[in-house]
């Protein structure tokens, strides 16, 4: 495992809601308005430590709460590399897939990883490798319909509403 492919995993718990991930007062469309709210329900050290490409790993019902996609923008602006949880809240699940942000489920990963552990995620093989020790963990990918949307790079491209990659 080459170190350069490793990213870190921010490990969170059960029922992580959208107001913790991105409080409503940071609602907006512009990067300057939205990005400061990333992980804004947590102590400021958490967001400060997050680097582009890092993963978020959570527990049961991840992303419950609001449908407001400002949090998806915040995830994009912060460079979230993907989300792996025990289970997802349904609107959040659709929103991430629609935005082309990779996600998968695993029942106990959030209990197994140490905080900010380094990992490597192979999204085409749907496995996660722990960089220290090299343990390979099988993840459950989204079902076929959703994988097609994800593979297309999001819903708008999947539906042919968008031909080229949006900047």
């Amino acid at each position: 495992m080459s170190e350069s492919r490793c990213v870190r995993a921010l490990v969170l718990g059960d029922h992580v809601n959208t107001d913790l991930l991105h409080p409503p007062r940071f609602f907006g469309t512009a990067r300057e308005a939205v990005l400061p709210g990333f992980l804004g329900g947590y102590p400021p050290e958490v967001a400060a430590r997050f680097r582009p490409g890092d993963l978020i790993v959570g527990g049961v019902n991840f992303g419950c709460g609001s449908s407001r996609e400002a949090y998806v923008r915040a995830f994009r602006y912060a460079g979230v590399g993907g989300v792996i949880a025990h289970s997802f809240s349904r609107i959040f699940y659709r929103n991430l897939i629609n935005a082309g942000i990779p996600l998968a489920t695993h029942p106990t990963l959030y209990q197994a990883l140490t905080p900010w552990e380094t990992v490597h995620w192979e999204t085409d093989g749907w496995t996660l490798t722990r960089c220290a020790g090299g343990e390979v963990i099988a993840l459950t990918p989204p079902d076929a319909h959703l994988r097609r949307i994800l593979a297309a790079g999001g819903l708008l491209r999947y539906l042919g509403l968008e031909a080229e990659h949006a900047v």
């Binding site: 449908s67 929103n95 539906l159």
Partner: peptide, 13 residues
């Protein structure tokens, strides 16, 4: 409920 991107697609299709 759906997110904005799903609604965008719904409005169009």
């Amino acid at each position: 409920g759906l997110g904005a991107t799903d609604i965008l697609a719904c409005l169009a299709t």
